[in-house]
């Protein structure tokens, strides 16, 4: 029986289901602590028992580094180091996607107060300020007024260290539903559209509080396909925003949660992932 390492900081809701689905489909999927691999020895003895590695580290830093070390030891890894590195950096990802003619939101890279002032002068309010490296919707800030924007930037300057100060400023795409697409291999397994509800303007899963409906259509499939062409096959959470001119790709997650989209799909997500793992290891 094929044996795949599920490398993660813990077993959460998603990992539990993946392990159960693997058991039901003749694949052994075992949790491996992402903080205890000590990789680097040429043949990666810590991964010697496994036919492949699936990375579910919540941390981009850990995920990208482990994928790099495992690939160097010629162990098949999902997602690839290149894909994780592309996803961890909102600027790199958008540059890659844009180069492939995929629609992404307009943005300005803000590394200083001068950049911030220039971005505010170039793009009309309301705007969104977000860290280049960051996730779970944290520190993503809606700027409605020019006068509060400067004070918000005081906090970036004052409390952000090094890479935490790198930010994007982009138009607030308020038509506002976001679509989360779950991909395994090349297959779009589930997609659902979210709208923020209640006390927070953001609608991402980590922050809770939103309404949900199924989202489908040829435009979504086409974008998802093109994103996979850029990143290579893998397991992704692709976030789209709906705009009057069509969908744009906001970001791609490397170890996507799927609880929120699970019941909008006719396909069983864990089973789809396991089938893909079988394909990769066969």
């Amino acid at each position: 029986m094929r044996h795949v390492a599920l490398v993660a900081d813990r077993i959460g809701w998603e990992e539990r289901r993946l392990i159960a689905a693997a058991g039901a489909h003749d694949l052994r999927l075992s949790w491996v602590d992402d903080g205890a691999l000590c990789l680097g020895a040429p043949a990666a003895p810590a991964l010697g028992d496994f036919d492949a590695v699936m990375i579910r580290s919540r941390s981009y830093t850990r995920g990208g580094l482990i994928a790099t070390a495992a690939e160097a030891a010629r162990v098949p890894v999902l997602n690839t180091a290149a894909a994780i590195h592309a996803c961890e950096n909102k600027l790199s990802l958008r540059a890659l996607l844009r180069a492939a003619d995929l629609p992404v939101p307009d943005f300005r890279l803000v590394l200083s107060r001068a950049d911030f002032a220039a971005a505010l002068a170039e793009l009309p309010l309301p705007l969104v300020l977000k860290p280049v490296f960051g996730g779970m919707g944290k520190r993503v800030t809606l700027l409605r007024d020019a006068d509060t924007a400067q004070s918000v930037y005081d906090y970036v300057e004052d409390l952000g260290h090094g890479f935490e100060q790198a930010a994007l400023v982009e138009p607030f795409l308020d038509g506002g539903s976001s679509v989360r697409c779950f991909v395994a291999g090349r297959q779009l397994v589930a997609s659902a559209s979210f709208r923020s509800a209640g006390g927070d303007w953001r609608s991402n899963a980590a922050l809770g509080n939103r309404h949900r409906r199924v989202a489908q259509g040829p435009e979504i499939s086409k974008i998802v396909d093109a994103v996979v062409d850029v990143l290579g096959e893998g397991i992704y959470g692709i976030d789209l925003f709906e705009t009057p001119d069509g969908f744009v790709v906001n970001e791609v997650n490397h170890a996507p949660a799927f609880r929120a989209v699970a019941d909008t799909s006719e396909l069983d997500i864990p089973t789809a992932v396991v089938r893909y793992l079988q394909e990769v290891t066969s």
Binding site: D9, S59, Y60, G134, M136
Partner: peptide
């Protein structure tokens, strides 16, 4: 707390973070 190991019904537990700046899902 995360279960690191189980030995004869005894849990070995370790405190883990609930969120870090470089997490994303």
């Amino acid at each position: 707390l995360r279960v690191d190991d189980i030995d004869d019904g005894r849990l070995r537990l370790r405190m883990v973070e609930v969120t870090l700046r470089d997490w994303g899902q």
